[in-house]
Amino acid sequence: MSDPRADLYQEVILEHNKKPRNFKKLEGATHQAEGYNPLCGDHLTVFLKVNPQRVIEDVAFQGSGCAISKASASMMTVALKGKTVQEAEELFEQFHKLVKGDLDPEKEPNKLGRLSIFSQIWHFPARVKCASLSWHAAHGAINKQQSVSTE
């Protein structure tokens, strides 16, 4: 019925691509990591400010990439702000399953909220890495990796 393009490039994604949230270098970041997809040239850096109670007080990203990677990074920063590191890691796991098509957000319990918009991306195997790039970078930052590559 519908054009699969519309499924992938939903209004929310296009809007986040055009006006990415928290798109800046974060002063006073406690953690940061680069995400790089050499296949398509997507390249971004994720910054986190984690307080002693292990709560992510602030999160931001910078870099260049396709609409999917930029929108995903933007939505991730919104989702992670205020979460504990442990909650963030759980969300990372769920998001990772979602984009690989291993989690149906309508049937299985999850905390993805608006992030479930990426549920259709596994129909586009070449694009899964675009959606997960910023998450890999955030996960790497939390785990003290300086750069991650998704190729």
């Binding site: 054009d3 393009r5 398509c40 396709c66 999917i68 586009f124 070449a126």
Partner: peptide, 23 residues
Amino acid sequence: PNIHPHDMGTLVDQDGIAIRTGH
């Protein structure tokens, strides 16, 4: 200017058009 080649590749593919995008 506003469309990353990777998005372009996915979009034209939906019309059955195979182009290469990337470096």
